[in-house]
């Protein structure tokens, strides 16, 4: 990760590239496979997944902004401590905000809201990106990362809810006789669904690579 951000520093990507980085090229869930504790723990339903994604996005953006603002005055020796302090602050803020908005969501996410603190995406972004870039750029990148993470969570949450309960956002899809696959909302289901998504991406990747290779071969022929 450090290497990639170094590259960016040299090339100065456009805002659009900065934004898309987290959504596609460096998607935290599917490409970097970071922050997996909440990814697997709370994605038993699409609603939970989106709530968690938005909460994380908020912390990501707010902390990236603040880290970027103070990046020149924080001595490097205490920077990690400073980042942790900043992140923990915003997690506390989001914790209270969710309680104020909806207790049901708060209960569903449980301790995993507070565990956003140790989500490696956030500290990783603060260290690798926000600390080296001006506020707007840091914020744009963080928004992209947050959205990418939310998409990842939603991809998991929707599959698990559809198969595990026959519902999406709490709305029954298949009628009353549908047999839910309970395993999907249990811990093993989380592992399997995420693994299947990764398999799918690996497979698409390998197909693309194979295609590129045959095309190359054709040109050479």
């Amino acid at each position: 990760m450090a290497a990639s951000s170094l590259n960016h520093g040299q090339k100065q990507p456009t805002n659009m590239e900065e934004f898309m980085e987290g959504i596609w090229k460096q998607n935290p869930t599917f490409v970097m496979v970071l922050g997996m504790c909440p990814t697997l723990a709370v994605t038993v339903s699409a609603m939970n997944a989106i709530s968690m994604g938005l909460a994380t996005t908020f912390v990501l953006v707010a902390s990236a902004l603040l880290v970027s603002l103070v990046r020149n005055i924080v001595p490097s020796q205490v920077r990690i401590a400073a980042y942790i302090l900043i992140i923990a602050t915003f997690v506390t803020v989001v914790d209270y905000a969710i309680q104020a908005i909806s207790l049901a969501v708060y209960d569903a996410l449980g301790a995993f809201i507070q565990l956003i603190v140790v989500n490696c995406i956030i500290l990783g972004r603060a260290e690798a990106h926000a600390a080296k870039n001006p506020p707007t750029r840091a914020a744009i990148n963080a928004v992209g990362m947050g959205i990418g993470f939310t998409i990842g969570l939603f991809a998991l949450g929707s599959v698990r809810e559809i198969l595990g309960a026959g519902k999406l956002f709490g709305i029954a899809l298949f009628g009353p006789d549908f047999q839910p696959w309970v395993v999907m909302v249990l811990p093993p289901g989380g592992f399997f669904v995420l693994a299947s998504w990764l398999l799918l991406f690996n497979w698409l990747d390998s197909r693309k690579a194979a295609k590129a290779q045959t095309e190359e071969g054709r040109i050479h022929a």
Partner: peptide, 18 residues
């Protein structure tokens, strides 16, 4: 090939969890 890496680890974790 497509099962290598994190996907494989997650499959194993899923089996253990099961």
């Amino acid at each position: 090939n497509v099962v290598q890496g994190t996907a494989l680890s997650l499959m194993l974790a899923g089996l253990l969890s099961l």
